[in-house]
Structure formats: structure tokens, C-alpha cells
Design a protein around this nucleic acid. Sequence first.
DNA 1: CACCTGTATCGACGGACGTCAACATAGACA
DNA 2: TGTCTATGTTGACGTCCGTCGATACAGGTG
Lengths: 141, 141
Amino acid sequence: MGRGGGEGALGAWFDMCQHRHMSNAKALPLLEPAAEPCCPPLNERPLTADEAERTAVMFKALGDPVRLRLFSAVASHDGGEACVCDISDVGVSQPTVSHHLKKLKEAGLLSSERRGTWVYYRVEPAVLAAMGQLLTKAATA
Amino acid sequence: MGRGGGEGALGAWFDMCQHRHMSNAKALPLLEPAAEPCCPPLNERPLTADEAERTAVMFKALGDPVRLRLFSAVASHDGGEACVCDISDVGVSQPTVSHHLKKLKEAGLLSSERRGTWVYYRVEPAVLAAMGQLLTKAATA
DNA sequence: CACCTGTATCGACGGACGTCAACATAGACA
DNA sequence: TGTCTATGTTGACGTCCGTCGATACAGGTG
């Protein structure tokens, strides 16, 4: 629970990425901390067991249709933020929605905040970008 | 089994993407068919049940640590292609390796070809790029 | 305070998944 | 043909996971 946001596996994964990134990042200052490349692309070298273990958590979180719809619903909402009541129309019961949102939060893809009666979830742009470059860099390299 | 490559869920997913892409693609010719953007980014609009169902298959395929290591091993090999014997050192038995490679193939992420004694797996760059843009476009938009 | 609404947690059930040993198949070679 | 190596398939087992109803918690309203 060191940094703000999720309290799940993202912390370790992101820290791992930052650590690796730091070894060859010397000239770039601290602007745009969310859009920077991060972590070895999948085709740079075979992932270690640790890297795979942590990275798989995030892919697994998006590997369920209901979670993918929930995540997309949050991400496509204004400001990348949505109340649970706005996105819970995905064909499963309310406890199941809550369960999946918790999973996405544990994977570090979403963070939540209670404001009055309602709870709002929003996406973590940095992680999204990191995951994307994991794939796009692999595709274009 | 219409197109070359995998025979799994990729076919439907890619076709779905192409179909959608065709509706707003009028001015671009057929160069770089593999690097083109494809499918709505996750933050463009909430995914439908069908879209989520098909897309989740690919994320789920990368949601297992062993499969992620196998995929990374293939992708990082020369030419994006590797013999099974080169990548099967991931700490599980040979049948399990074969099982996971089959899953990756069914998800459309890998294709396989037998050449003599050995079987070679290689990545599908188009799908990789499509998945990446699903995330990077969502991250930067 | 009581009551209502929105969200999270608990406990249980059924199905999917990762794993293995045993066996089957494909090709190379003698 | 037989044998050896490389890979895929089968069947079984244990565990994880998605789902639900019931219940608990939080906050607003009266």
C-alpha cells in the first residue's frame, strides 16, 4: 500500500518495470511519467518466471468477458471514471459485479474511491500504456 | 480453418475487427496490412458482449505465467520463430508445454508448422499489433 | 432513531483450468 | 522393418474461478 491507487499486484509489477527502466534511463527528466515506455517487450528476451508471474496477473484480469466489459465501460466513461451504478448492466448479479471490480483493482488496472453514496472506479493510465507497449513494441520490433 | 495460420478463436476476432475497420476505412490502400489499427480501443465505448467474449480469449491466453513465458520465448527468438525443443525449459512437463502451446495457437497468437522432426511455432504479428493498440490507444486518448 | 439504497463480503456450488503419467503418432535412421 | 527421438493426445486429479443468494456495511433521508 505504498503508493496511491490499487493495493494489489500492480505495485510489484510496476516497481519491477521502473527498476528495469531506470537502468537505461539517464537523460530523461520527470515529465510525462505516465506515457513513458516500461518493461521489456515480449520479444526482447524470454521472460523470467518472476516477470511472467506478475505480468500474467494483469492479462488474466482482462481475460474474462465480464471484466473486460466492466473495464471498457469505466475507460470509455467521461474522465476515465465511472460510478458502479453506471456500469453494472453486464448481465450478472450485483455481487458478481463487485467481485470482478475487486479483481480488476487487485490487478492494478482500476482504483476506487467512495464519494458519498456512490463508489467511483477509474483506470490507471500508466499501467495501460505499459501493457500496450509490451505488445506494440513486440509487434513492430 | 479458412485462412492460413491458427484455426482457433482468432479467426472470428480478426474478422470482426476487419469488418468494423472496413466501415470507416475508405482512403487507405492495402499497404502494411499487419500494422494498421484495428478494433475499438477499450476506452472508445463499452465493449459489447460479443466483442468482450472474443477479445477476452486472447487476454486469457496470455494470463498464464507458463504461456506468457512460452510466448515470449517464441517472440524473442530469431525471426519470431522457435522449435519446441528450444523453449520447453519452463519448469513443467512436456505434455503441459504442448498443452499450453495448443492454447496459444487456438487463441490465434501462435501458428505451428512441422519441418522434419521438429515443430516450429511463430507469432502472429498482426494480432499482436491489434491487441497492443487496443491498449495504447486507450492509454493515450 | 428507523428506513432505504448502493456496495462489499461470505459461503456454497458447479464448471473450467493447469498439471501429470501413460500412451499414441510422426519422422529420421539403420 | 524396427528403433529411437520429438511432439501431440488422453484420462484423471486437485485446484482455482465465476456465479449466485444471503447477509453485512456505509451513507443519505425522514
